[in-house]
Amino acid sequence: MMRRLVPLAAALLAAVLGFWITLNWIPGFIMSRAMEQVESGGAAINSATHAPPVTEASRNVVRPSPDILYSICPFDLSHGPLLIQARWPRNGGYASISLYDSRTNNIFTLSDRDAGRAPAIWLDRPGTAPVPDGATAVSSPTQTGLVLYRQIVEDPSRIPAANAERRSFRCDAQ
C-alpha cells in the first residue's frame, strides 16, 4: 500500500509546486517579453520612446487604447537612479506617469492632478542616493521595469499638438 501512496503523494506535492512556481514566473515572463518587444521597436533602456498613435496594427501591449498617446521608458537601475521628467498638457487634459516593476506591479503613478506643471520623479533602488530638490522619490523593488506616460487625446485633430507636448516626457540615467 505504502509503495503506491508514496509516489502518489510525491506527484501531488510536485504538482502543487509546479503550479505555484509557474504562476509566480508568468508575470515576469510576460513583462520581459513586453520589454523585449518595446526594445525591438526601437526603445532604448533608460530613454523615452514616443510610440506612434495606437492603430489597429499596434501589437506591442494587449488592449491598447486608441484614444491615448503612450510614451515608454524601459529602465535598468543597475548603474544608478533615473530622473523622469515631463510637462503636463496645456489644455488641462489628463496625463500621467506610471511606474511598473518587473513583476508587472504598478508601483507608483503621478498624474497632472497630483503634481505641478513640470513633475520630476527620482527612481532608485531602496535606500540609495539622496533625492534632488523638487523631485518625488520612488523606490523600485526590482532593478528593471517600465515607465509609461499616458496622454489622452480628446479629439483626433489634437494629435499633432499632443504629440509635440508629450515629447517633454524624458528619462535620464544619473
Binding site: L23, N24, P27, V62, R63, S96, S98, Y100, T104, N105
Partner: peptide, 23 residues
C-alpha cells in the same frame, strides 16, 4: 489590478490580459 498585494494567480491573469494597467 496593479496591486503588489494581488495573489500570484490574479497577478498572472492581469499580466496576461491587462499588462501595464493602472491601479
Amino acid at each position: 489590478i496593479g496591486d503588489p498585494a494581488a495573489s500570484p494567480t490574479v497577478r498572472a491573469a492581469i499580466a496576461r490580459r491587462g499588462l501595464l494597467a493602472l491601479n
